[in-house]
Design a protein around this nucleic acid. Sequence first.
DNA 1: TAATTATATTATAATATTAGAATGTTTGCA
DNA 2: TGCAAACATTCTAATATTATAATATAATTA
Lengths: 97, 97
Amino acid sequence: MYNSKYREISDFFNALSHPVRVEIVAELLNGQKCVSDMRELIKVNQPNVSQHLSVLKSAGVVDWEQTGKRKCYFLKNPARLRKILNSMKEKKNVSGG
Amino acid sequence: MYNSKYREISDFFNALSHPVRVEIVAELLNGQKCVSDMRELIKVNQPNVSQHLSVLKSAGVVDWEQTGKRKCYFLKNPARLRKILNSMKEKKNVSGG
DNA sequence: TAATTATATTATAATATTAGAATGTTTGCA
DNA sequence: TGCAAACATTCTAATATTATAATATAATTA
């Protein structure tokens, strides 16, 4: 329906359009974390964490690996995300238009 | 309800979470445009263009000035937006996680 | 193999977003 | 003043997102 170039870009932004998902990404910038780690760090219940992780996974922002009973999530491209988030806080006005 | 730091960031990403709004921003990177310019460049009807511009305005991404009968919209911080968009297309995989 | 731990999925209700139609407002000009 | 152009707002129906509760699955351990 829409130009796929802009659709791809908006899909990525959409993945980060919820505060919980931004917080998840911020935590993952410090290293990989499993779901129960997230559940403690962020004040959100377990199914909701899974839902948000699923959105991030679909958008290609994160991936995971199994470690025993746990699933460890990590950023697929931490360098670029760090860059994008840094370029947003360069000034006080985060809106960045 | 959520940490305001992450809320601010997600609000910005949310502003760019629709393909039409990304396209609007892409066009505005080439200079300011009025609503009827947009309406021609993008295949979207007038009220819908106004709605999307309103979302971008609320998020602080764009502002406008009156020029006769027209309203000319422009990016409030084109440099930063250019930077963010550039850092997204550095690799083929736009997801950038 | 049964129980437990860790995580995912499904269902549901509430809310938000979106496109498009209809209507309203503002500006400039005849 | 009356009209047309440019843009915004409101309304509505369709769809999407979200949080929570309930349930299911997968891996480990007793």
